[in-house]
Amino acid sequence: MDSVLQSLAEPLHYAFFQRSLLAALIVGVLCACTGSYLLVQRMALLGDAIGHSLLVGLAIAFAMGGSLFVGALVSGLVSAAAIDFIRARSPLKEDAAMGIVLSAFFALGIVLITLVQKDNKIDLNHFLFGNLLAVTGGDLWDTGLAALLVLGAIALCYKELHFYTFDRLGAQAAGLPVRWLDWGLTTAIAITIVASMKAVGVVLVLALLITPPATAYLLVPRLHQMMGLGALLGCFSSLTGLYLSYFFNLPSGPAIVLVASGLFVLALLFSPRQGLLIASGRSSVADASEGDRPAS
């Protein structure tokens, strides 16, 4: 036992591992909280679309010598605006709009990166899959600040967001500024993705946004519980994934995502409320809500 603890404590002596660990925990909490909103809004793909579109901003910011963080954030928001525009002004639905914008921005990003790369070498892999073990002090500072901003905003506007995500029309009728809340939430998601980019990369950030809250959703009935448990699961996945990455020389992002996915499968099979293997003797949510509803 002692030797296990010793080997777990061993990497903590390195400053780089401490930084990675802190970044992983921050990202775990942050993604679970904003991801819960993506999940209940049925907007999981929006995270994917924003994630892939960041490449454009990164390339431009890199070429111009600006802040990568700001560049990525701006292109994330532009892509969300483009999705919103297509959805509002054409008969196309949201999923088609996201598919189009996602691929267009991703393609443009790859083209721009290739052009920029003629002068400077950029490793596209870091962007796509992240590298927690290479997180710098500056990165950690950025990520922490972003997390503070987003989590603070969610805490302050929790009840408005709760009302609006549950019953948008009712909230609008009561006079809540739903368009502002739309954009507030989209911005929070964009900031979350940019802040997590370094750790897990844009392809895998979706897993941290969706999987821990989805796991929690199977286990607890209320939104704030889903965020809390999701954050715990996110942290556990980050922590375990990071150690696996350190000891077995695995890429850190995928290791974290695999742990999170494993937890999800466990909840899917064994959740007391909705587990597939606990199904006998349990009336499903859908059955109960059918109740006295006639065909309408």
Partner: peptide, 25 residues
């Protein structure tokens, strides 16, 4: 305002208490 039931996602993670408190927002 209470919208048509088809406008509301009843799989949303909220209890009856949560829903009623929303009226106080």
């Amino acid at each position: 305002y209470v919208p048509q039931r088809s406008q509301v996602d009843f799989d949303y993670p909220a209890t009856v208490w949560d829903v009623v408190l929303m009226g106080r927002t």
